[in-house]
Amino acid sequence: MKYVLLFVDTEQFHADLEALTPDDRARAFALVDEWMAEHRQVIRGGSKLQDRHTATTVRLDGPEPIVTDGPFVEGKEVVSGYLEVEVADLDEALAMARTWPGCPVVEIRPLES
């Protein structure tokens, strides 16, 4: 089955990352690289997204499309990246998410076949 892992950042995570020394930050990124290498076989695509300040939202549920600055949910949590993976079932996707060394929240969604 194909799933998308949606990675979600929090303000706290962002602040913690900023506060790290360059060395520690490099180590944190290295962990993510290792994780990616480990799961190379099942990753079909995906990317990190640019920062939330770059987001633009278009709302189409009114009489006219409305364009606003910022992500679609106003909140402390914001989608920061995604990966498309192909694994046998939800347990395998869960096992990947459990060991993810980056941001603090991961949502797992199956793709429509």
Binding site: M1, Y3, D89, L90, D91, A95, I108
Partner: peptide
């Protein structure tokens, strides 16, 4: 969501 019908892995 593809919740499997099988025994969990040893790790889980």
């Amino acid at each position: 969501a593809g919740i499997p019908y099988r025994l969990p892995s040893d790790a889980d």
